[in-house]
Design a protein around this nucleic acid. Structure first.
Lengths: 156, 156
DNA sequence: GCTGAAATTCTCGAATT
DNA sequence: AATTCGAGAATTTCAGC
């Protein structure tokens, strides 16, 4: 990936609804050229999609927590992500190195809802849980700074 | 917030570039009515903005980690988020309950870059760090399911 | 891979109910 | 708060380089 693609990705990370006209102005390219590049970035999977950043307090999910899980039976096949996918309170699931096997990021309405969710997680995936409650979030979703060598070592 | 606003937020969370025309079709409202509602949701801060979902492997930041930090001097004023804000590798910073004070989500190019980042974090915020490396991410950025009572208890 | 232009579709405010 | 309508802007495709 070179300079202009990096610029485009950075701009779209900051404003996912930026128009092609504005992207063209910012990059010095024609609207058509930018359009073509964005479509190619989407097709290549560099840009996976677009999303609105939502205020979870405003939609009734003010409580965020990180839930680390560990299998009860370490010999059992590990399909925890599949078993948990139906729980919409789980925003993200990361497989991690260390004492536990996954870290889940969850959003719920209340402490009671969290308690209920934890029981569902334990039951669905046969795991023990360790929960860290988020008190506040100084920042989140910051746009990445893309290095110059990025596109030269294509991973996808 | 009522039914239609919830629907709009959910749709925009799934596709942040969905046109007003499509939103109108999905909600059964006129284009102008949807337009008006989206602008109001943005103004109220329910929709904070829009962003492209980026493949971090493709942009040269394939290594994700969670870094928990703890102050070396618990009596010192806690301004760690401010002291760390300049480090662009830090995507998110959450203040948490528990043994440690913050959990940072970071994206770097390599193990060496992570090592370097950890040193910068320790030096900038006078903290100790505990790092959990992400091996893979089964899912992330899933759209929230918005409860019916959400808008009736406005937090913002 | 870029440009410029044409055709289509979308945005967004004004007037109205 | 919704609707219709219209002007202006953006999107998208395509021929040509």
């Amino acid at each position: 990936m070179e300079e202009i693609d990096r610029r485009i990705v950075t701009l779209l990370a900051k404003d996912g609804r930026m128009s092609f006209t504005d992207l063209a102005r910012e990059t010095g390219l024609s609207v058509s050229a930018v359009h073509q590049r964005v479509r190619r970035l989407e097709k290549r999977g560099v840009v996976r999609g677009y999303t609105a950043v939502i205020d979870h307090d405003a939609i009734g999910l003010p409580l965020t927590a990180f839930v680390s899980i560990k299998p009860i039976d370490p010999a059992a096949p590990d399909d925890a992500p599949d078993r948990l996918a139906h729980l919409s309170a789980i925003e993200a699931c990361h497989s991690v190195a260390g004492d536990e096997s996954y870290i889940l990021k969850v959003r719920v309405a209340s402490p009671v809802a969290l308690e209920d969710l934890l029981q569902q997680i334990r039951a669905a995936a046969n795991v023990s849980t360790r929960t860290t409650v988020v008190l506040s979030t100084p920042y989140e979703h910051r746009a990445p700074e893309i290095a110059a060598e990025a596109a030269d070592h294509p991973t996808a």
